[in-house]
Nucleic acid binder design. Structure first.
Lengths: 338, 338
DNA sequence: TCTTGAAATGATAGCGTTGTCATCGCGGAA
DNA sequence: TTCCGCGATGACAACGCTATCATTTCAAGA
């Protein structure tokens, strides 16, 4: 390789700084990493050169040399579902000051895209991969397994993790919903949901709900499920459908988006909440709390999930002997619609 | 350096694959990049070795060697404001299949954090940096300037960009809002907003609105501005304050979050929309469209902004001679609240 | 004065790829 | 039969940094 220099991207290198400050590259490197002992005078001198030249260390070279990338891969299924940005928020806050950076990939609930995304991320030798859910292609799981990176599966804990799982038990959440509503005296349960194929966790909640109802000798008397992703519009439409089908005194929704749609339908149709119909959601989104009547729901702690995921990932570069599960829990938010 | 091998992260290297396939590392590299001419038999042979060993090329080494990182830095002020995840969505879609990856940093509207974030991103020698807004520290601007990376400033276009700007004119948006409402016959304008210090774009829209009103011999007769960030709760509270202060026939909001709060206040207080009060927002969020009465607002095309930003960034590795401005526009969404 | 050793700095060899050039083998033209 | 040319492959240095070990410096103790 003769001459690559002319068109090189990174103008200034350690070497340039070292020359200008009259020290060796080693010393500059030590100073930039704020590690090891360096005489104060030398440090000052070098920092002047750094500033004069506008030197920014090249982390690509640094990572290659130290075999340690300080990159955190994050894989989420969606950006439009507000839940995941909230997780990212938690991740970001936990990352500030750790000098790690997040590389983010969105799969759109497609396991093939997930596989591609994970392969792409692993190519950067990340210190950890934070990924939503337990459902992965075998190839994906194998790659994660063998990668050497810490792996944190986020959102749910109803299954055995590859390395660490951070989230809540959706089955227990559904069960808690059922118990709560039974205690409040509701008996005729309706269910309004969206597509389970893409959202296994919604299914788990439904199962938990049914278990609680069954224990009390009850059951879901009617349900309306939309085909696609959850949305306010879908919640609205399915609520109309549900109420046209059967008479229920409470409707449990697959999540708050859908439930807000239900509230809007009732507002429009003149159905009084919770007198004529009670509505119960899942997630505890901001919008639900700000409705004219605060939405009754179960709070999942998305922000906390993100934070804990990072904490677990950075706690140690090595995996524990056996899977670790971190339960971030959930709480009933009574609200005023149930 | 004697022995670093024992604890190396990346198990399998080109060398391992080459040995197993009985070819040279060069050939393996060529095949992995799907570039240049390689005999089909050789390719097949190598791919077998790749699969057997579970080889994943190390992009860190690759980037160092080729001086080309295929990383895209993204800097946004917030994850909780739904607007930015929507931009990220556009970015992600545009990135799929381009084998570039997004490294994301969130600044929380803090210019110091922005500077740190940009420095951190530039250390990865990204092909481009997509950053929200025009307001940066001098040092930040300088770093971006000298980085060699393409720089796309997103969301607004009312100023001269470092390299490319993709977004809409917030001043014109505010002006259009004014014109639209005047044409619909409104005369007594109120304004409900949030903190301008962190959100200059809201200020620009306000200025545009005032300009339109002034042209028509009108003005904002009352305003209520919250101290913090925009939110449904703040919109609600400030609407109450505004209406206690003065009598207006239309309230223009700094954005849809605030406006939805306004709608909820009216719903609760029995104020009829748009008869007693008209409400006009900004952004065109999903939630506004799904309200019992669709919110009248101005649609900004966040998704498109993200897409166009990536397109502009990847169009060429070199900056154009002079700043490029891409106007993604806005449209009035008439709705039913104004 | 000479030793001793800790503190500070330097020299050097990689880290795993890729870009460039060199080489090899083989079929067809001379 | 020799040579040319081209497709296919290999050799090797370089990318910018850091880990490791070697060396220098200098003050304190013998």
């Amino acid at each position: 390789m003769r001459v690559r220099l002319p068109d090189r991207k990174s103008r200034v290198t350690v070497e340039d700084v070292a020359r200008r400050a009259g020290v060796s590259p080693s010393t500059v490197s030590r100073i930039m990493r704020g590690q090891a002992v360096v005489a104060e005078a030398t440090r000052a001198q070098v920092m002047v050169a750094v500033r004069d030249l506008g030197y920014v260390p090249n982390r690509i070279a640094g990572s290659l040399a130290s075999l340690d990338s300080r990159l955190i891969g994050v894989v989420i299924p969606s950006m439009s579902n507000i839940v995941f940005p909230e997780v990212l928020q938690g991740i970001n806050v936990a990352l500030v000051g750790s000098d790690h950076q997040a590389v983010i990939a969105v799969t759109d609930y497609d396991l093939d895209r997930e596989e591609v995304a994970v392969r792409g991320l692993l190519a950067w030798q990340p210190a950890a991969v934070l990924i939503a859910g337990f459902e992965h292609r075998d190839a994906t799981r194998r790659m994660l397994q063998h990668s050497g990176a810490r792996v944190v599966e986020m959102m749910e804990i109803d299954q055995e993790p590859i390395d660490v799982a951070v989230g809540l038990s959706h089955r227990r959440a559904g069960y808690a919903t059922g118990r709560h509503l039974i205690e409040r005296g509701y008996r005729r349960f309706g269910y309004v949901g969206h597509d389970w194929a893409a959202d296994r966790r919604a299914r788990l909640r439904y199962d938990g709900l049914c278990a609680a109802l069954a224990e009390a000798g009850l059951g879901v008397v009617a349900e309306a499920r939309a085909g696609g992703a959850s949305s306010v519009a879908a919640g609205r439409a399915q609520t109309a459908r549900l109420l046209a089908t059967a008479s229920v005194d409470v409707a449990v929704y697959s999540n708050d988006d859908m439930a807000v749609g239900g509230v809007f339908h009732c507002l429009t149709a003149g159905i009084r909440l919770p007198v004529d119909l009670a509505i119960f959601g899942f997630n505890g989104l901001e919008i639900g709390r700000e409705l004219p009547q605060p939405l009754s729901t179960l709070r999942s702690n998305r922000y906390l999930i993100g934070q804990q995921a990072v904490a677990a990932a950075l706690a140690s570069p090595l995996r524990p002997d056996r899977g670790l599960v971190i339960d971030t829990g959930f709480e009933v938010f009574a609200g005023a619609t149930a």
